[in-house]
Amino acid sequence: MSIQELLTPILSFLKCETPQAWLDEAVKKENLDIILIDHLICELKAAQSAMFLIRKYAVDKESANALLAWLEPFETFIYKREGDWRELPAKNKLSKTVIPKSNAKYGQDLIDKMVVLIKEELHHFYQVLEIMDEYGVEYKSITPCRYAKGMLRNVKTFEPDAMVDKLIVGAYIEARSCERFAKLAPHVDKRLGDFYISLLRSEARHYQDYLTLAQEISGQDIAERVQFFGEVEAKLILSDDQDFKFHSGVPA
């Protein structure tokens, strides 16, 4: 499938395209470090978000603990700066079969989709570390940008609506990431551009997985909530932003 064929549904889902001002800032050599480090953290956050959904809504305590153990080496590397990043691929696997709770009516589907997504995100996490090593970019702690928090503050507080909203937010974050990979790819060197296109190809369906789950779990038409979060997301992307990051708005 061509890049344009992958992008067409993503662009029709998003309510706006990335502003040129963000792209102009993103391709500056002095911003390569922040783009790569923030991208690295985004991959881990995506895995954590998917894992949170499984642990909260779909599995028993034993399975939840196995999921936590799976993610631990990656979190330890980021939050405690411990471990050798080259050993992470060997740790990207579940230690046991994850079993849905007996009362989780959508448990197996949620587990199946999210486990695949987590594996992919952690693989991409490692690939970003490889790129950082090649480009001589050292990992350092950075502050989170306003983007995800700006979306999540609109999530409802009662279930299952809260879960449905979180899945819709996940869909927008995944779609925006793909759109930005496509924007960046022609303006960076070939190694990085090829990497962004490979990510676009592998992640293009993630937002649809989130939306499918949201619709299944809601049992009602979610179009109104999808529209609502699309407008929230577009406002964050198009408004002035003091903090330049991978998902930030217009550089102020």
Rank of each mutant, 00 (worst) to 15 (best):
I10Y: 08
D241R: 04
V59L: 03
N92S: 05
I78K: 10
Y57S: 00
K113M: 08
I41H: 12
D60M: 03
C42H: 15
I142M: 03
I54T: 09
P186I: 07
D241E: 00
D33H: 14
E203D: 06
L36I: 06
P89S: 05
D109Q: 13
A47M: 07
F158P: 07
K80R: 15
Y172D: 09
T143E: 15
E138D: 11
A182W: 02
T18M: 08
T8N: 01
R81V: 15
N31Q: 05
T18R: 09
L200P: 00
A175D: 07
F125R: 03
A69T: 09
L53T: 05
G136K: 11
F125H: 01
T97H: 03
D24H: 14
D161V: 14
N92R: 05
L122M: 07
P89I: 00
D209C: 02
A185L: 05
H123E: 06
N154V: 11
A223W: 08
F229I: 05
L36N: 14
A171P: 04
L40F: 05
Y106Q: 11
G219D: 09
E179W: 06
F13T: 00
N65M: 08
N65D: 04
E17W: 06
S95D: 11
M132I: 06
T212L: 04
P73W: 04
T212D: 14
K28H: 10
I168R: 07
D241W: 05
F246V: 08
T76S: 13
T76W: 04
M1K: 04
A214Y: 04
I131W: 10
I111G: 06
L129G: 02
F158T: 14
H39D: 13
E233I: 00
K80S: 12
Y135K: 14
Y135L: 13
I37P: 09
L184D: 04
K29N: 13
R81H: 11
G230Q: 11
N65Y: 12
M1S: 06
L11C: 11
L94D: 09
L129S: 02
A171K: 00
S2M: 10
T76D: 15
D165M: 10
L88I: 09
I142H: 12
R86M: 10
K56Y: 10
A171M: 01
C16D: 11
A104K: 08
L68D: 14
S248L: 08
R205V: 14
P251I: 10
S63P: 03
A26K: 08
L67V: 07
L11R: 13
D194H: 08
R153K: 15
C42N: 15
E25D: 12
E30D: 14
L6Q: 01
F52M: 09
I111F: 03
L6H: 08
G150A: 09
L238C: 06
H123C: 02
G170F: 00
C178M: 03
V27A: 01
E17R: 13
E87N: 12
Q242M: 13
K56H: 10
T18K: 06
V226R: 08
M114H: 12
E72N: 12
E30V: 15
C178K: 07
Q48E: 10
K91L: 12
V226S: 02
K28N: 02
Y135Q: 15
E43V: 05
P160S: 00
I197P: 04
L117E: 07
G219M: 05
A66H: 01
